[in-house]
């Protein structure tokens, strides 16, 4: 009897002590203790944290110059605030709509034609049974990913020149040579095709990995039920690939308006500005070269916000099938 009561007393005392200790251990002291114990990890992360602050966060917060009349000698702190004047200006400015239209059109074509291309290619690869052939072809398909856009641009100009291969082939059929790269009608097609050429092989890597992860017994069962190759793709591969496709689609949509400076810059000529001048090339010319910092930052900010809104909307849609990014 006695013993048990002492035990009880001890227990409650212990519990009280524990409560006090937990209360004493504020968040700060937990961190301090963690730092003391694992200080090396904190030292290791310092350069990385400094990098992200300096090259990612400072420019991000530096975007406030979109709301200023930024003057280089006054800096961010002393430049006058004009709030939404820059945005009012760009929305009343013909060139802006022009550039936005070009960007959106090219982005749209790239999504329609460029996004499915690696999926289709991965499915085709998957039907190949000769391993030697498969490996050789894949190596060739990855190659263009390693070329710079300057090189690819050079190749494109060369192929499409008046004396280039494309015009030589057309010449066989008696067609007059066309300087494609300077024709407004062809510019966007060239952008989309060259983009696919460079990126399609590389893009298959993730899809092929996802296809390899599919349980082979599913196919075996389907074969027993009499499904042919096409039905196996339609009812097994594609549905199981869908989550991967969705994630990549969402990542893509977040950068919808960011087409990649290098590609367009290296394919663009003054002849094709009317159809090919995009936000990034315009911002470079008007901002970096001509020093209209505030207005071009406003355009850049607009671009980022559109990207985020699109990502948000599509993620909401994706979440309905419980497969969103967050």
């Amino acid at each position: 009897m006695d013993h048990s009561s002492i035990k009880l007393q001890n227990k409650s005392e212990l519990q009280m002590n524990a409560d006090v200790i937990i209360k004493k251990k504020s968040l700060l002291s937990i961190y301090l203790e963690n730092i003391r114990k694992y200080w090396m990890l904190y030292i290791m992360i310092l350069p990385g944290v400094a990098f992200y602050i300096i090259f990612k966060y400072i420019p991000l917060f530096g975007s406030v110059i979109a709301f200023q009349d930024y003057q280089i000698f006054k800096g961010i702190l002393n430049s006058p605030w004009v709030w939404f004047e820059n945005f009012k200006f760009i929305f009343s400015y013909q060139d802006f709509y022009h550039v936005l239209r070009n960007t959106a059109m090219i982005a749209f074509y790239q999504l329609i034609f460029g996004f499915p291309a690696p999926i289709i290619l991965a499915l085709l690869f998957n039907e190949i049974r000769l391993m030697f052939f498969k490996r050789t072809v894949q190596t060739l398909f990855y190659l263009p990913h390693f070329l710079s856009w300057v090189v690819v641009g050079g190749i494109v100009f060369e192929l499409l020149a008046t004396g280039g291969i494309v015009n030589s082939i057309r010449g066989i059929f008696g067609a007059e040579p066309i300087l494609f790269i300077q024709e407004e009608n062809y510019f966007r097609t060239i952008v989309v095709i060259s983009g696919i050429w460079k990126g399609v092989g590389w893009g298959t890597i993730i899809y092929l990995a996802a296809i390899t992860a599919i349980n082979p017994s599913l196919y075996e069962a389907a074969v027993i039920d009499g499904a042919n190759r096409w039905k196996q793709i339609r009812y097994i591969t594609l549905p199981l690939l869908f989550p991967t496709i969705l994630v990549l689609f969402l990542l893509n949509i977040g950068n919808f308006l960011e087409l990649g400076f290098d590609q367009i810059f290296n394919l663009l000529t003054p002849m094709t500005y009317s159809v090919g001048d995009i936000i990034e090339t315009y911002v470079y010319r008007a901002g970096v070269l001509q020093g209209q910092f505030s207005v071009t930052t406003a355009i850049g900010l607009f671009q980022s916000i559109v990207g985020f809104i699109l990502l948000y909307i599509f993620n909401r849609l994706a979440r309905k099938s419980e497969q969103g990014l967050w």
Partner: peptide, 21 residues
């Protein structure tokens, strides 16, 4: 820190503030 880093993937800084930095 991981969240802060992933945020920079979603919100890319515009070209001009990056250039000025």
């Amino acid at each position: 820190i991981m969240i802060a880093i992933v945020v920079t993937m979603i919100f890319n800084a515009p070209m001009i503030p990056y250039f000025l930095t």
